[in-house]
Design a protein around this nucleic acid. Structure first.
Lengths: 388, 388
DNA sequence: CGCCCATGCACAATCGATGTAGCAATCTGA
DNA sequence: TCAGATTGCTACATCGATTGTGCATGGGCG
């Protein structure tokens, strides 16, 4: 202890009261040894046969002196950090930000600290970010919508890091995704049935806009779109698809070109994401109000405001609550291989405010801890999911 | 080193290749000492007089073996973590999620790691979160929209942690906020000028909905609202204000009661936030489409979709880019006292897509690093801000 | 030739918390 | 009464990286 004492006195001469108090400080003021203090404060004191009165006294003093554990030291020693990582494409998006929100509440319920980082769909950035999180020793990792989940899985596997893919599946780790095919089928059907009639054969069709062909989710939705068009209209939908990228500007261009080609707004539009929808709106803002009299838009994403547009907008809301809940279930059980759980999304008709995931945590302080109720409510929705 | 070697061999028998490689591993394979390896890898090798060839060789091997620094160990030793913290009310909101997005790009540009945590406007949760972040040794802290910034400042001050308030001012630390008064003045004026005429005296007024009276931002906006109503109409606006809380449901109730009271939708509504607007929409969804023919809504927040509602919506977009940029400037310079910088927001007319902050980082991979261009663009807006 | 300094690197202490091993004192039971 | 168990606590090594100090070696200079 001689060493410690010397150190501490040097410290205190350098930073009067700036440094946080440590177990050594508390050890000195209680007369106990640092290990006893550690035991008393980390909750292991019972199993380490520390007298209750000693433990309580130490806890009292620690509280009084405003002690908090130095997580870096603990993490270094225990080789875990209490951090749970999540990488996602972007924050500035209702789908992804609801992910972080719900993720956060789960993590906090477990007494850990969330670290959510976005990577802007840049594979290199994704890898760098995962490496950074690993260097902070995150205890597990949620990989949301990664462009290249498998290469991230490799990085994680190298350090034995438990991880799960969400929203986009990988082949090297368990995944929890939306049932994009079913969702898109429903959306396409609904668009077709609610599309206004048009005498113009080109405008009378439904078109698909946005997303990237290489993207699994987009591919699934396109497949569903084609299938439904074939079933209901007996047509081939190849020419009705414009899926270049997730970039809103690309979608703006796509929809402009589409309109020039068909000579006006088509009466039905399947927009592949809120991102794309924003791009489409950018083009829409150049059109006169009358242009929107005879259209119906479907958007594969949910946004309460988008649902109240000045034209009918059918939306698909992914069940973020369940996606995250299942992801946690997987992380916490030891799942082998790379199963893929599909969660059913929900169709939201125009001008509807669905119970957004926000409801759960915006209800008020403290309510976000109500894990039980959330799960219960989620179950009510559509309990059918399939592993493949 | 005897000790180390023994340890390592024990380790490797326990976890074959699972543990991350450390400087000790690299020391062994290069024949150098751990301190030399550390110097070579941390970039301090020049000042520590390590031969260039030695350093390069070590770096090569480290790269080859996939070494990455254990940030917990480094952090423990250096008493800093490379983490930059941010607490905000919620993720699931365009304003706040644009905050995190832009915050993140700034943090990454500095080679550090962002940790953004939401606290749902719960003062206790805010304090707990700040303490958690402190226990992870965040190097600085951005406090966004805290309900009680000063109590957080106290916690930070106790451990000498640099921090800055954003969006809501505090008296114990520097703050960067929007000029809510000016923004609300503009918005109120615009509502008054574009409000449709109504023969009904009650419906012909503009009403204020949402937000919490105790909240500084809300108070400022109410002050502006009252001032403008007084100036333009010579009326006292006290009875036109319904500001109970940020909870969307409260706003839903507020607007319902308001409508019952005035006998229909008033022709002008000042909605204090996107949160409140969502609540209002919830009520709106119960009304027939015709109800919206003669109204204009102003919302103190910007959302691209909300701008395209089926009735005119005037929005105010806060300059998140500048808010964050200035906050970083403050953190990085040594500002004394608690100055408060006000940034001008921007009025967005109905059915307009403003260049959202998203544009900057959604443009594509890598582009988010273009700090210079963003600042330049931000400067173009409204370079007038005042310290008080 | 011998002193001094620069060069290149290694040693060991250190950050704060954890946990195994073990010591001393008290208690138990035959 | 004394071996053996139990209780209550301390000592010390450890996690991985950083850094002040110091030891060799070799060159320059008088």
């Amino acid at each position: 202890m001689q060493r410690r004492l010397a150190t501490k006195s040097k410290m205190s001469s350098k930073r009067p009261s700036a440094g946080k108090t440590t177990i050594y400080d508390i050890a000195r003021s209680t007369g106990a040894s640092p290990s006893t203090v550690s035991a008393a404060l980390s909750g292991t004191w019972r199993s380490r046969r520390i007298k209750e009165s000693t433990a309580l006294e130490i806890q009292r003093l620690a509280e009084e002196q405003g002690y908090t554990t130095n997580m870096q030291a603990r993490g270094l020693r225990k080789a875990r950090s209490g951090l749970v990582g999540m990488v996602l494409p972007a924050h500035f998006n209702r789908f992804f930000s609801s992910m972080s929100q719900i993720f956060e509440s789960h993590v906090r319920a477990r007494g850990m600290c969330p670290v959510v980082v976005s990577t802007l769909r840049d594979p290199a950035e994704e890898r760098r970010t995962v490496e950074t999180l690993i260097s902070y020793a995150v205890d597990s990792l949620f990989i949301v919508g990664a462009t290249d989940p498998d290469s991230l899985s490799d990085i994680c596997a190298a350090v034995n890091l438990k991880h799960v893919n969400v929203d986009l599946p990988g082949r090297k780790a368990p995944s929890v995704i939306s049932n994009n095919y079913n969702g898109a089928r429903q959306l396409t059907r609904e668009i077709l049935t609610s599309m206004p009639r048009s005498s113009d054969p080109l405008r009378a069709k439904a078109y698909f806009i946005g997303g990237a062909q290489w993207d699994f989710a987009t591919a699934e939705r396109i497949r569903a779109f084609k299938d439904v068009i074939a079933e209901e209209r007996g047509e081939n939908a190849d020419d009705l698809i414009r899926a270049r990228s997730y970039n809103p500007d690309a979608s703006a261009t796509d929809v402009r070109e589409l309109c020039e080609q068909v000579g006006g707004l088509p009466t039905g539009l399947f927009i592949n994401s809120a991102f794309a929808f924003e791009g489409v709106l950018k083009y829409f803002s150049t059109l006169p109000p009358e242009a929107f009299n005879n259209i119906v838009v479907g958007c594969y994403d949910y946004d309460p405001f988008a649902s109240f547009m000045h034209f009918p907008v059918i939306m698909v809301r992914q069940n973020v609550d369940r996606l995250i809940a299942e992801a946690f279930r997987i992380i916490e059980s030891d799942v082998h291989g790379a199963p893929c759980l599909q969660i059913e999304p929900e169709l939201i008709r125009p001008r509807t405010l669905s119970d957004s995931p926000g409801e759960t945590f915006r209800a008020g302080p403290g309510s976000e801890r109500g894990e039980g109720s959330r799960k219960t409510r989620a179950k009510k929705h559509k309990p059918r999911e399939e592993a493949r």
